[in-house]
Design a protein around this nucleic acid. Structure first.
Length: 506
RNA sequence: GCCGCGUUGGUCAAUCGGUUAAGACGCAUCCCUUUCACGGAUGAAUGAGGGGUUCGAUUCCCCUACGCGGUACCA
């Protein structure tokens, strides 16, 4: 029990949950479930200035849609709460102070203006981004540069201050990354990161380390963008809890957009979703479309994300979540970033739609149709329709275009497709056909087809010449399942009605 | 600038020193189908560049180039 695997996804609730975030969730989840471990959701809301109402609830909604339930979280409960860092605020100060006492950190009183001035002064072409490090530490106002008593009085007077880590001047920090192998950094190239902010909140650096320890996290997955600050975290573990207790790190490769790092702008620009679900920015009211609303199945969405950076070494590409749990291995996660390919994403969805049966899709298709104003209460009919058209649907939303004519006459007919070859003889054929239809005892696709062919032979017209017009009459365009199946499902009277109605327009 | 991580077709990618360098998406052509799809077949398309190591490098090492990330009291 002591060695139980515990992983965590720790998003900052500042907006929509994008592709990369969901993939991080997925890999966390797969890893934990494969090893019988727990998946924890921790909210990293230490930046009060970036609080966005609704963002936290939205994250939970996205996970729910994906079918990934945390074992522990702010709403699922658990023994290691609270699961929001803002609610754990008081626990961080002690650790920060302990670091100061041991000489691993120090108080810094520099105001934002002073910091800005320092950066201005030191900025050169060769050093465009001066850091608060060993080279400048001495000229700033902190408990290292200032006399002890002055520091003491400033502290007593509640002078606004932060606590910064004091990085060793020149030390190689290395650790094993589960994906990249051994990585190392020289502390001389890293700045003295702020650990505790002036408002008493910890920064990410302190909070991850403290919470990962307190929550007994065994393996920590995060995006590659964290790699450069990982030596700070390693040092913090060493100073606070012992490096041997540190979780094993795995820095996941980034998901790229068409031009560089994937952003929600790419979505708007190239017409594909980047968020799991629709997200409306409460400040600007700007809506960013989600995969869910675009018509993706969660199974396909997850499948696609899993393959963006991982494969099982075989040629298999379609995986269910249970399959993924069984086969996932961190060793096979790619090191390089992957460019997101919307065409491939759609292919996954198409595969999943084709693979599902009518019952699996029923509810979702019904919703799509009803969203567009089609009332569907005949489940038997709906199932038949789904089976007939699902191969033609890449997105769930395609079901409307592919199936609406089963429930409603087409609004417009592609007359241009029939008119060039339209003749009086053909018109007569359809009139006779309607009479024949009226007389049909059983309205079933095979009988409809044979009646159609019989009349065609009588009129001496090739059946093939007549099928397209018939299709246009029933469907409105050159698409859809076999015509006789359509006629069979929409019913005798409706078929005759559509034929007669079309005859007036051709 | 500095630091780090990467680099196999347009994209996702297999290969763990010896292969005609898989497969998938997309694209093209054909077959099936008197619609559109599905399905099937075929094709075009890949190891960034340069040095090593080795009998032999896509694979191991170095350099260069390029890409990405970081360089905040944001995560």
């Amino acid at each position: 029990m002591e060695n139980k695997v515990r992983v965590r996804f720790a998003p900052s609730p500042t907006g929509g949950l994008h592709l990369g975030g969901v993939r991080t969730v997925l890999y966390n989840y797969l890893f934990a479930k494969k090893l019988g471990g727990d998946f924890i959701l921790r909210i990293e809301d230490t930046d009060q200035s970036r609080f966005v109402p609704g963002a936290e609830g939205y994250i939970f909604e996205c996970l729910k849609w994906c079918g990934i339930e945390p074992d522990e979280s702010a709403i699922h409960g658990g023994d290691y709460g609270p699961y929001r860092q803002s609610e754990r605020k008081r626990s961080y100060l002690g650790y920060a102070e302990k670091l100061v006492e041991n000489g691993y950190a120090y108080y810094a009183f520099d105001t934002p203006e002073e910091l800005e001035a320092m950066r201005q002064d030191l900025r050169t072409a060769d050093n465009p981004a001066p850091q608060y490090d060993q080279t400048v530490r001495g000229r700033m106002r902190n408990s290292i540069s200032l006399p002890a008593d002055e520091t003491k009085t400033m502290l007593l007077k509640n002078t606004p201050h932060v606590i910064r880590i004091k990085l060793p001047d020149d030390e190689i920090i290395s650790f094993q990354d589960m994906i990249r192998g051994e990585v190392h950094f020289n502390t001389g190239t890293i700045d003295d990161k702020v650990l505790l902010k002036a408002d008493g909140m910890p920064t990410y650096h302190l909070a991850v380390v403290v919470d990962d320890f307190l929550m007994k996290i065994t393996h920590a997955f995060r995006g590659e963008e964290w790699l450069p600050s990982s030596p700070v975290h390693v040092l913090l573990w060493r100073y606070l809890f012992g490096e041997k207790n540190m979780p094993q790190w795995a820095h996941l490769p980034l998901i790229m957009g068409p031009s560089g790092k994937l952003s929600k702008r790419d979505g708007a620009k190239y017409g594909f979703p980047v968020f799991a679900m629709n997200w409306t920015d409460p400040a600007t009211n700007e809506l960013t479309e989600g995969f869910k609303e675009k018509g993706f199945l969660p199974e396909a969405f997850l499948n696609m994300l899993a393959m963006l950076g991982w494969n099982d070494g075989t040629e298999q590409e379609v995986f269910s979540i249970t399959d993924l749990i069984q086969k996932f291995s961190i060793e096979r996660v790619h090191k390089a970033g992957a460019k997101f390919d919307y065409e491939k994403a759609k292919w996954f969805n198409h595969e999943w739609i084709k693979g599902f049966n009518a019952e699996d899709l029923r509810l979702k298709v019904k919703n799509v149709l009803e969203d567009r104003g089609l009332e569907v209460d005949d489940t038997i009919l709906l199932d038949k329709v789904i089976n007939l058209v699902k191969d033609r649907c890449t997105l769930l939303t395609d079901f409307y275009d592919q199936a609406y004519f089963f429930f409603r006459s087409p609004a417009t007919l592609d007359i241009a497709a029939v008119r060039p070859k339209w003749t009086m003889e053909k018109k007569e054929f359809f009139i006779s056909l309607c009479q024949e239809f009226e007389a049909l005892a059983e309205w079933e696709s095979a009988f409809i087809e044979s009646a159609f062919k019989t009349i065609a032979t009588e009129k001496n017209i090739k059946p093939g010449e007549l099928q397209l017009p018939f299709r246009i009459m029933l469907v409105g365009g050159k698409f859809g399942p076999p015509v006789f199946d359509i006629a069979g499902l929409i019913g005798k009277q409706e078929t005759i009605h559509r034929i007669m109605n079309s005859l007036e327009q051709f």
